[in-house]
């Protein structure tokens, strides 16, 4: 069966066959992989059920514990506030990076350089200890010559420090995402808007940003999900977020694994929700672009 002639087929015979669809070849590799994966999954499930150290009854008891739920709320709040700061400041930075003013471009570039170049954990710690850097905040001149001032610890409570630390860091990443989105809109769009008499701000708001959103949303979705988990670093300055609240509980009852499972279940549930929200948003901003959407309209 190695020569071409030997593989020749009689057309009449083929035409006489009831079914000429291909019978699938057996894929030995795939079958083997199926068996291995199935075995691993079974082993994992058995281990989860059989190993008493997972402490499922404790997991169940604390999953909806008031302190845990409060922690979930704090985590969500941190995520929302930090993302809002990140998004607004990120758009501003992205626009500044395209500014005609060299100083503004340089300032935006330096901001991104600094906040992307140092670990977020360090930045959050910095804000947590802001009071020792600037004991008082207020309006006046550098060097502590204030017209009015307040005690830093009073104005920037630890929760605000956490939000600032996360948000200002996020802005640096967001700026690059937004900038990429702005650059993705063809220059003809700006020209068309200009010839219609739209100003700079109107062109950005009605023509460029809505189209940039299509490119920006998927990575922003990633950032939200990554932020939700990154909020857990605020543990180091003593904010009782989801992770903070479970660590407090296991500090008392020593059921570390069970309570870390509680936290993981919540993080997973929330990121699942966010993933769903992201796909909804993507459809919304794909208007006029996505073929599928057009066919339905």
């Amino acid at each position: 069966m190695t020569t071409g002639a030997a593989m020749r087929v009689d057309a009449e015979q083929l035409a006489g066959m009831a079914d000429t669809r291909l019978v699938r070849r057996r894929r030995i590799g795939a079958t083997l992989l199926n068996v291995v994966v199935a075995l691993l999954v079974v082993a994992a499930v058995v281990e989860l059920v059989v190993n008493p150290n997972f402490d499922w009854p404790i997991v169940a008891r604390y999953l909806f514990d008031t302190n845990v739920l409060e922690g979930v709320l704090v985590t969500l709040e941190l995520t929302v506030y930090a993302m809002v700061i990140g998004l607004v400041l990120g758009v501003v930075l992205a626009v500044l990076r395209q500014s005609r003013s060299g100083l503004a471009r340089g300032a935006a570039w330096s901001y991104i350089w600094f906040f992307r170049g140092t670990p977020v954990l360090v930045q959050v710690l910095f804000w947590g200890f802001a009071a020792s850097l600037f004991p008082r905040v207020g309006i006046g001149l550098p060097g502590g010559l204030f017209l009015v001032s307040w005690d830093t610890n009073a104005v920037v409570p630890i929760f605000a420090a956490a939000v600032l630390g996360l948000g200002l860091n996020e802005a640096a990443y967001m700026a690059e995402i937004v900038r990429g989105g702005l650059l993705s809109v063809p220059s003809g769009q700006t020209e068309a808007a200009r010839t219609l008499g739209l100003g700079h701000a109107e062109t950005l708001r009605f023509v460029i940003l809505p189209q940039a959103m299509r490119v920006i949303i998927p990575p922003i979705g990633n950032q939200v999900i990554s932020m939700l988990k990154m909020t857990s670093v605020v543990l180091v300055i003593g904010v009782a977020d989801l992770l903070g609240s479970v660590t407090e509980i296991y500090a008392r009852n020593y059921r570390q694994i069970a309570l870390l499972l509680v936290a993981s279940i919540w993080y997973l549930a929330l990121t699942t929700l966010l993933t769903y929200g992201q796909s909804r948003l993507e459809r919304r901003f794909g208007r006029g672009i996505s073929r599928l959407e057009d066919d339905r309209a």
């Binding site: 068309a192 808007a193 008499g197 189209q211 901003f285 006029g288």
Partner: peptide, 21 residues
């Protein structure tokens, strides 16, 4: 912008805004 708005322009590539009806 005000003076441009009195001059209509039509482009080779149309340049319609794709996200709007």
């Amino acid at each position: 912008a005000e003076r441009r708005s009195r001059i209509g322009m039509v482009f080779q590539q149309f340049n319609l805004f794709p996200h709007m009806t």
